[in-house]
């Protein structure tokens, strides 16, 4: 649910990075945080365990510039990927405007990808959202690993709906901003359509 503030002339949108455990959601945000001008970003918050696994969420506020006199601000969130944190994932999806699904390209993680995607679909439906209708992009992460599945196979399994898809190596930043731009664009286009 976007928030239009006429008083401060701001438009706020919420983007959630979703995906299986250790697929690189937090790494995406860390790269964005590291590469953004200080004036365009707020503090990045990570609620993580001692072993740096996301416990509740990561949060990064980002300004992208002005449209028609309104500042566009995006709030980026990640969910905890581990299966047993499902209650937390549901909470974070509340009021979401756009979703990035980060898939782990490794063949061994394919089942985890599919399980997480199904979980996303179910959790969105619980909030009354339809994954086929909201702004949604897919990122195939860890393309540098030797055991990465082919793009054709990933596409067939993870992106049957043919939404915009991106390859990435989040640890080096390759593909991270392409993914962000794509989802931000889709969210703004949705906004344009109005309520």
């Amino acid at each position: 649910m976007s928030f239009i503030n006429y008083s401060s002339r701001e438009i706020n949108c919420k983007i959630v990075y979703y995906g299986p455990g250790l697929c690189g959601k937090t790494t995406n945000l860390q790269y964005i945080y590291a590469k953004t001008n200080p004036e365009a970003k707020g503090k990045m918050i990570s609620l993580a365990t001692e072993t740096e696994r996301t416990l509740f969420f990561d949060f990064l506020p980002l300004s992208l510039g002005e449209i028609r006199g309104f500042k566009t601000r995006f709030h980026l969130y990640t969910v905890p990927g581990q299966v047993f944190y499902d209650a937390s994932r549901k909470l974070i999806l509340k009021g979401v405007d756009g979703v990035v699904f980060v898939a782990d390209s490794q063949i061994e993680r394919m089942e985890a990808n599919l399980e997480s995607m199904e979980n996303l679909r179910v959790n969105l439906a619980e909030q009354g959202y339809d994954l086929n209708k909201i702004p949604y992009v897919v990122q195939y992460n860890k393309r540098d690993l030797p055991n990465a599945a082919s793009i054709e196979e990933l596409h067939r399994l993870i992106n049957p709906g043919n939404v915009p898809e991106f390859q990435s190596i989040a640890s080096t930043g390759w593909g991270v901003f392409d993914t962000l731009k794509a989802i931000a664009k889709l969210v703004l286009q949705e906004l344009k359509k109005g309520r």
Partner: peptide
């Protein structure tokens, strides 16, 4: 009430990036 964003163009959005 209307939305101020009903009139933004794809170009406006592209310019942002």
């Amino acid at each position: 009430a209307g939305s101020p964003f009903a009139e933004i163009t794809d170009e406006d959005i592209d310019n942002l990036f």
